[in-house]
Design a protein around this nucleic acid. Structure first.
Lengths: 227, 227
DNA sequence: CTGCTATTCAAGATATTAATTGAATAGTGG
DNA sequence: CCACTATTCAATTAATATCTTGAATAGCAG
């Protein structure tokens, strides 16, 4: 009967959305785009794939409606097509996190040893920011900081962290954050700071989650060192 | 370098969750399980597949951590592994709905013509329930009604609707609801009622969304006809 | 134990997908 | 127009997924 075919078509249409996220490389692309728009070759470099391959993955995301494009000169910038996609990505991570078995070991292999690292949740950081006893440091690349960051945060990309330690106000705990709960930047930063004897912790999640929660952010203005 | 491999493994682990939903048949299974647990052959019948094939799909959902199993006698009951999975499924539908192009025609082919059908949103129904000028009818199969329904709803499965029209209190608009926004039951019910000259509308979403929103529900007690 | 039911496993045909390579297209600047 | 860059397209290979069929397993009823 035709109703079964129509029903199949309907659920196939839903499944197409999930399928688009069903490749590690495309998932990584979505994770990066959650920080802001990127050109094809920026993405290709970040995910460690050829430009041709990256382009094909992007076409699939486009066909599934997860991303939009914008042309600027002869570059094409891709971005998430809306907040529903961020929520979808967050839901995927959450389900994956709940199915701890496999994920934890894989995450540990990538993020490294987190024993001896303090991890602050969003409300904890929020509270300590008001108390004023911490410095919040955004350790993502500068471009991402400029496209939006936690209000009052200092930009200190991991790659430059070691050279610019003197920009940190002395005597206060540093809280590093980056792209999200499974981003290495903050972990690397905390370990570096601890090596220099500077008390440091990381924010459990990243900028997109902070912004999505409606907590205070700033756009396009470098944060001054508070105090 | 090993970090790239570890990163790939991490994102592959996330992607595995999405991939599990990346087949129309598995998506349909998840949609059904959102109403409550089911045995393998109930599911097989509902999705129109062989038991063997359905079992394999279920194994995949199990491996990805989307479902749990429970044995009762020689039947095995599958259910969603937690609310995070419902949220994931809702997020998928929402992204698909946003990418209107393809979905709308597919949905129309399955659900039929909705012109001339009033569709109430959750808050609208909530309000009219308090005003008391509508009868809410749950048109899902009885088992689903028993495992949870909107508080005060009357159970009147679509398949029996035409025979049991006399159970409807006269003079009030009937609001039918079922499994979710893309479930045909409510659409069919509204069209049937309208054929008999009974004023009817459907709830835009279904029981899972109502319950997830924290609105009043009842479990395992048939709703009395209010008034 | 035997027969029965529900579920899972295994093997094979067909179709889809990811990554690679090399060529084609669209825009920029001279 | 030409050279150059960024992106997409097309063809190939290797790996995976779906569905089908038929057999194997696990628990229940006698």
């Amino acid at each position: 009967m035709g109703s079964r075919e129509a029903k199949n078509a309907l659920f196939d249409a839903f499944a197409a959305v999930a399928k688009a996220l069903g490749s590690g490389r495309r998932a990584e692309i979505v994770d990066i785009l959650a920080q802001g728009e990127r050109s094809v070759d920026e993405l290709a470099r970040e995910i460690g794939q050829t430009v041709a391959n990256t382009s094909q993955h992007l076409q699939q995301l486009l066909r599934a409606g997860l991303v939009d494009t914008r042309r600027d000169g002869n570059r094409i910038y891709y971005s998430l097509s809306g907040p529903a996609v961020s929520r979808l990505w967050a839901a995927v991570r959450q389900v994956a996190a709940g199915h701890a078995a496999r994920l934890e070991e894989v995450a540990a292999a990538y993020l490294g040893d987190r024993s001896g690292m303090t991890v602050l949740t969003r409300p904890e950081l929020s509270e300590r920011l008001q108390a004023g006893d911490v410095v919040v440091v955004d350790v993502r690349p500068d471009a991402e900081f400029r496209s939006g960051h936690i209000a009052g945060a200092l930009s200190l990309p991991v790659r430059e962290l070691e050279k610019r330690l003197d920009e940190l106000p002395a005597g206060r705990t540093v809280v590093a954050y980056c792209r999200g709960p499974f981003c290495v930047f903050a972990d690397d930063a905390v370990r570096t700071l601890q090596r220099y004897g500077i008390p440091a912790a990381r924010l459990e999640e990243g900028y997109p989650e902070w912004a999505a929660a409606g907590l205070p952010v700033e756009v396009h203005r470098p944060g001054a060192v508070p105090g």
